[in-house]
Design a binder for these strands. Structure first.
Length: 486
DNA sequence: ATGTTC
């Protein structure tokens, strides 16, 4: 477990801080933290800075160990961490991805205005809550046999669309087309697959949610309209969930395996939680193949949930989907490791980029960005905490230079779940939200207390830092009308 | 995040 930060922290400018390379600590590179003074106040007493420093000790890291402005303490790596590794000398690490592999967000736009749904909000929320199972350990409506599950793990969203859950457009505007190549169902344990079989199409718990929102403010009319965001008051829908018990199990299994592998390869690290193996080792390759399975499961999960959301809207509003227009704007992961090409010291290099609580936001022109958006840059969807705003952003050239094309992933916790629960009961949190006109349905009051707004940093401030540093630029801000929680 | 301390 990482301790309170005792290293040196230098202020570079209003939004950037450096942890200089300290060879006596074992650092092989520097750490860079993106934050303003206010966000740094919380971070100074957070062991997350030690974790930034620890990641800077990992073999084969290319560029700095980085922390986004929503950074906070996590398992081994900080949440909000970005680290890239050389494919020959570098490592791959489950702690750099997190337990919820391919936790991610998707944004859908509609042809509805706030007044079209105001009177139906309770009914819509109830319907979503009924149709999409939510809560820890919750099982879904789909029972997959082993063979079908393997197809899910190999093809992600593409499998879901083939089964009738969604359409071609959904795949076009999902990061990586909804699945990563290289997934091998035999690379994960029987137990992981068993956990995955009954859970496809479930929301889960924690910070996962479904939200009915409306556009609060548009910052770039042209970019917004290209993404189907046409005016303020327009209704949008957001899905935030991941790979459920399967991803958790893949991570847990891999941590044990890679702890042994780290010893075997003589990798000496300041924290056991940084368990890793060389990218090109059998253990490293096996983790990637398993992680890719969980990533694909996460995409299929969000895709199936999207299908049921469309059905719920149709039923409650009594109109066909063509009159509702629930089209996917984009879907992006914020917990994943990927092989990508970047410019390093003036030449192209393939790297293994770990993003944990960080969102890929490639700049304009990259082939990974869907053709439709390629000249704009990669959309990044940043959910706020419960009851506050969420953001639609775009990737930038600056992000390519500074963060291997990465930005923040949300508000970021500032209070532990335990501390949050002590402050208020879930009932109070719920009644405050309802008092502000936000409908709430939750599988558990405990989760509501853990996820209360006061337990998070200010998402608008976090977004402000990314915008001013140039890690991503503002397109639109959405505010919640109704939320469904696990 | 997680059938939440296998």
């Amino acid at each position: 477990m990482a301790k309170q930060f005792e290293g040196t922290l230098e202020k570079i400018d209003d939004y950037r801080w450096r942890i200089p390379r300290d060879e006596s600590y074992g650092m092989v590179t520097e750490g860079i933290v993106f934050a303003d003074e206010e966000l740094m106040k919380d971070l100074r007493t957070d062991a997350a800075l030690t974790q930034v420093q620890n990641v800077a000790c990992m073999p084969g890291i290319v560029g700095p160990s980085m922390a986004m402005p929503d950074c906070h303490y996590g398992y081994g790596f900080p949440i909000g961490g970005v680290a890239a590794f050389d494919l020959n000398e570098g490592v791959i690490s489950p702690g750099g991805v997190g337990y919820d592999i391919n936790c991610g967000v998707r944004l859908l736009r509609t042809d509805l205005e706030e007044q079209d749904v105001r009177g139906k909000l309770q009914e819509l929320t109830d319907s979503l809550f009924r149709e999409i199972p939510a809560g820890v350990g919750e099982k879904g409506k789909i029972q997959l046999d082993e063979k079908e599950l393997r197809r899910v793990l190999e093809r992600g969203s593409e499998w879901a669309v083939t089964q009738g859950y969604g359409n071609e457009n959904d795949l076009e505007v999902t990061e990586d087309g909804g699945f990563i190549e290289g997934a091998d169902p035999d690379a994960i344990s029987d137990h992981a697959r068993e956990r995955g079989r009954p859970q496809l199409g479930t929301l889960g718990s924690g910070n996962h949610f479904l939200e009915i929102q409306c556009v609060d403010r548009i910052y770039d009319d042209e970019a917004a309209s290209r993404m189907g965001i046409l005016d303020e008051g327009q209704v949008t829908v957001m899905v935030h969930t991941g790979s459920r018990g399967l991803g958790y199990q893949v991570c847990d299994d891999a941590l044990k395996q890679l702890q042994r592998a780290a010893q075997k390869y003589g990798i000496d690290l300041p924290d056991r939680q940084l368990a890793c193996a060389p990218v090109d080792s059998p253990e490293g390759e096996s983790y990637f193949a398993g992680m890719a399975c969980a990533a694909n499961y996460g995409w299929a999960n969000r895709q199936i949930i999207t299908h049921w959301m469309r059905e719920a809207f149709e039923r409650v509003l009594g109109r066909g989907i063509s009159q509702i227009g629930l089209q996917l704007v984009y879907d992006v992961a914020h917990n994943v490791a990927k092989f990508e090409e970047h410019e390093v010291n003036g030449r192209r290099q393939r790297l293994c980029v770990h993003r944990k609580g960080a969102t890929r936001c490639f700049g304009p022109g990259r082939e990974e960005v869907p053709e439709r958006y390629r000249d704009l840059g990669q959309p990044a969807i940043i959910p706020g905490d419960m009851g506050t705003a969420s953001w639609l952003m775009l990737g930038t050239d600056e992000a390519m230079q500074l963060t291997f094309g990465s930005t923040c992933h949300g508000a970021g916790r500032t209070m532990s779940r335990t501390a949050a629960k002590k402050r208020q009961h879930g009932r109070e949190v719920q009644s405050e939200l309802e008092g502000r006109g936000i409908r709430v349905r939750s599988a558990g009051l405990k989760t509501l207390a853990e996820e209360a707004s006061y337990a998070y940093k200010d998402v608008d401030r976090v977004i402000g830092v990314t915008d001013r540093v140039g890690l991503s630029r503002r397109v639109a801000r959405m505010r919640p009308l109704a939320v469904v929680k696990g």
